[in-house]
Design a protein around this nucleic acid. Structure first.
Lengths: 93, 93
DNA sequence: ATAAACAAGTTTACATTATAAACCAAATTT
DNA sequence: AAATTTGGTTTATAATGTAAACTTGTTTAT
């Protein structure tokens, strides 16, 4: 009746990050931080978890001389996000 | 952009309990346990939290000689659940 | 009548998770 | 060249979730 919710996505910040990444080609750390209002530390940790799960990829480079961390959602991430949304609907109706 | 999610409801088991209670007049402990598949311990704890928040009420009585715990959602609970659902939609689109 | 098993929970202890505070390195501004 | 800002990471602590053990009383079997 109530499907199990993916614990990796059932977190306010990780869900917000995935929600953003699901809608854009890529987003960098600073952008995600602004949009979510998260602290850097928290965001850094949650990005690590999503990366470890294979839901996003992280590319480190430089914009001019400043470091820049770019995130993208993966296929697996898109799928997990879709599944999560479907599962959640069971709880909300 | 991303509204804060009520932490009391953003929990798999508490959400399932609220989802059930939102749709029925009342439900007892055993019923909630069966429907959610939760362990008694976990269910007991989460019911306490929902009660402390004023989202549900608990009435203890007996069915024959056996103890029976009946739960009902409150007005505040209905409202919080509705708000939560609305907030969550922002994350899913 | 007594012991064993079951029902309905509660309490407690542990593991996981989330969050914030402190820190770091390099770049920029004053 | 000192102070501030950017872009993060690491670490320590607080909050949360979960399972295992326990409690109280009931029913069933011996």
């Amino acid at each position: 009746m109530f499907p199990k919710l993916d614990p990796l996505l059932h977190s306010e910040l990780r869900l917000a990050v995935m929600s953003i990444l699901a809608g854009v080609d890529e987003a960098d750390f600073t952008y995600l931080k602004k949009q979510t209002g998260a602290t850097s530390g928290n965001l850094s940790v949650q990005i690590d978890k999503l990366t470890a799960a294979g839901y996003i990829t992280v590319e480190k480079g430089f914009k001019g001389k400043m470091p820049r961390t770019t995130c993208r959602i993966t296929e697996a991430g898109q799928e997990a996000f879709g599944n999560y949304v479907e599962s959640l609907k069971e709880y909300l109706k």
